[in-house]
Design a protein around this nucleic acid. Structure first.
Length: 275
DNA sequence: AGAGATACCTGGGAGC
DNA sequence: TGCTCCCAGGTATCTC
């Protein structure tokens, strides 16, 4: 499922394909998405050229040569494909086709319809799309640091896992990477964020960066398949240490992983070595 | 204002 | 086998 590393993987793949390509036509199959896929797309996109693909958190921005950009979010089941036009019939949950010059079609799929695809204001305009304006630090940037975590967490009673998943603090860390980061940093996900010590914030920031980077590396392995069938299967799933391991023994201390619900999301952790 | 709950959506799995 | 129920996920929006 598309987390930040998958979004980055998709960005890199699209960056190799889309810039310089002209949009010939657009087909919208499912107008009623989380945000409607407006007829605007079919009216406005043809004739435009993609110039660059940027990422902010889990959002991708595909810049167009008229100054606007297509904003994409993959929700939890979004998949993007670029395939030869007309070669493969539309799959059940493909909601949008963008036909490009050179005989390629960009296809946007989302089983659970949590994804977003829409036109937004000019690239580089200070008036960012509202979705991006409130996002917190980019986890792989220098801004995301022990100091930032320590400062923003003071007086917060919310569990540290919920705090890490708060998009206004740091963007792009979902349930999987919050779970893995807390396990690697040996911190109990239930701890109030405000009680974290500086050294613990330091471990959190460092482990989050390390895990995201190695996931991007693993997700990169699916880039080669990107043009063919399905780019959604990165290899990072095989490297997960804690996520989904409830009931199995902890490889670090032997205690059994247990599960707790935090912020409405189930959370797996080791009560033996996460303190 | 902060924190928790809920709605959105679909497919897969469990239980009967 | 077929039905119902629950769960997964990110984000916006609500209620307390």
């Amino acid at each position: 499922m598309p987390e930040l590393p998958e979004a980055e993987t998709i960005r890199r793949a699209l960056q190799n394909i889309l810039p310089g390509r002209r949009i010939e036509s657009v087909e919208v199959f499912t107008p009623a998405m989380r945000e409607p896929l407006l007829p605007l797309l079919t009216a406005e996109l043809p004739g435009k050229c993609f110039t660059a693909i940027r990422r902010r958190g889990r959002y991708l921005l595909a810049d167009l040569d008229d100054g606007r950009a297509a904003l994409m979010h993959f929700g939890m089941s979004g998949v993007v494909r670029v395939e030869e036009t007309g070669k493969i019939p539309r799959r059940k949950h493909e909601h949008l086709f963008i036909h490009l010059d050179g005989g390629l079609t960009f296809k946007f799929e989302c089983t659970r319809r949590f994804s977003i695809f829409k036109l937004c204001s000019p690239a580089g305009d200070e008036k960012q799309p509202p979705e991006l304006a409130q996002l917190g630090a980019e986890p792989l940037s220098e801004e995301f640091s022990a100091e930032l975590l320590f400062t923003l967490s003071r007086n917060r009673k919310t569990p540290v896992k919920t705090f890490l998943m708060d998009n206004s603090v740091v963007t792009g860390i979902g349930n999987i990477y919050a779970t893995e980061t807390l396990y690697a940093a040996q911190i109990d996900p239930r701890r109030p964020a405000g009680k974290l010590r500086k050294a613990e914030c330091s471990r959190l920031a460092a482990e989050a960066k390390r895990i995201l980077l190695s996931a991007i590396e693993a997700g990169g392995s699916s880039i080669s398949d990107f043009l063919h069938v399905d780019g959604s299967e990165g290899k990072f799933a095989q490297q997960l240490s804690a996520y989904g391991k409830c009931g199995t023994p902890c490889p670090r201390c032997g205690e059994t992983f247990s599960s707790v619900k935090l912020g409405g999301r189930s959370s797996c952790f080791c009560p033996g070595c996460q303190k």
